[in-house]
Design a protein around this nucleic acid. Sequence first.
DNA 1: AACGTCGTTCTCATATAGAGAACGATAACA
DNA 2: TGTTATCGTTCTCTATATGAGAACGACGTT
Lengths: 253, 253
Amino acid sequence: MDNYLSSVKNSCKLLKIFLNAPKELGVSELSRKLELSKGAVHKLLMTLESEGFIKQNPLNKQYSLGYTLLELGNKVLKNHNLVDFAKPYLQRLSEKTKELVCLCIIDGKDAIYVDKIDSKHPIRFNAEEYRRFPLYATSAARAILAFHDREFIDEVLADDLITFTPYSITESRMMQDRLEEIRKNGYEISSNLRNVGATGIAAPIFDAYGKVPASVSVIGPTDRMTPYQEQWVRELLQITREISQELGYREGR
Amino acid sequence: MDNYLSSVKNSCKLLKIFLNAPKELGVSELSRKLELSKGAVHKLLMTLESEGFIKQNPLNKQYSLGYTLLELGNKVLKNHNLVDFAKPYLQRLSEKTKELVCLCIIDGKDAIYVDKIDSKHPIRFNAEEYRRFPLYATSAARAILAFHDREFIDEVLADDLITFTPYSITESRMMQDRLEEIRKNGYEISSNLRNVGATGIAAPIFDAYGKVPASVSVIGPTDRMTPYQEQWVRELLQITREISQELGYREGR
DNA sequence: AACGTCGTTCTCATATAGAGAACGATAACA
DNA sequence: TGTTATCGTTCTCTATATGAGAACGACGTT
């Protein structure tokens, strides 16, 4: 750690601890998780609180994330014009399939669902919106990963493949084959990846540079998806083709 | 600035600059706005980028807010159980009035809309969701402010009252009278506060401690609201009474 | 009543933050 | 096509802010 501002890095890490923790945390607990002295953590919290990034509960003295983060997060969404751009297309797809429709983007070696339209069915799956997860872990993410450089893919698959259900692929070699298939077909179908009993169909969005920054996916219970599988693939590919074109993508270079 | 970590404070200020700025900003511009050397700002950005709080556009070298902020902002929402709690009540109110229904909370000397259900009418107003604004500036906020300590109110009104339309109250004295009226009636109606031609009706939510942490409001075009004014007030007060009770509030102590 | 743990405050040696100059790259202009 | 201005980035260096650690009072438990 030579080039970075250590206290800033600590403050970022502190905030991120809250992502996988209960709503409120105390100084001592944060101090342990950060491996930093209590005094230092306290000063961090005081500073972050003065800027609205952290809030202290006066009743139990514990700390939680502040509302300034809500503003900043919302600004991130507004900045990302693809979300507004794709909205009407997602809505069309949602009306046709009546299933959960998601817009997924790449960020570093992770994927994030940045928009979704819920299924109209009483039985349905929920996408973990705005949550970060690995690029190999869902169909939506794979549809993005498959169309990146071999070099980048290798880098992503070099990490241990974390699985969320017993059905997931854990072998880097098998994943490579899978991605090859996605490139061949132009879309991805898989079941039981993130939730057992769920099937996802996903297709990439190409931008003007031929890059794939995002994907659109349809997700639903497997038994409801299977009968319509081919139809939903057609609809999905139609939608992603339209979005890609409007982003300036020209097929075949 | 003695008790605070200066670099952390700077990093917070840096992030907040983006709230009222274009999507992307350069080092030099940020350096000017922060009144910090370019070198220092660059190191700040490098650190924030390494944690996903900032993203650099490789094409023009400019910086924008990172997706980690999206995750954190979403976590803030999930933490705030009032949002989930109030959702069904807001929906009921939305179905009855067909107008924009908002849930507004207090944060320091500001108010924030944390949830909304859009109007079904083709002509409608938009609430600036997740945006921070002064406690005197909208009917929803005033319905909260009115039920706070005289001391706190004085503190809020001591600042210069920023106005968004020519019709707003700018005199602290007049605002005090207005708040007195809200306390007497138990709700607030006002027009042309934030948008010309809009009327808002708002009522406070009381918690188990008798405090007012939030309000519910109905907002629509004045000419469409006026005929139903009394009816919407009744519906609104019914809803806020139910929410308050479920939060543990007992009327009359 | 004694103990453990909490959040907070304090001191102090040391690592580090931030100013400022210099860099190459790029864009604007004549 | 040079010239100039401005950009993002890198570097050095010293004053300073940082973070460890001990000590504090306040709770809650045993």
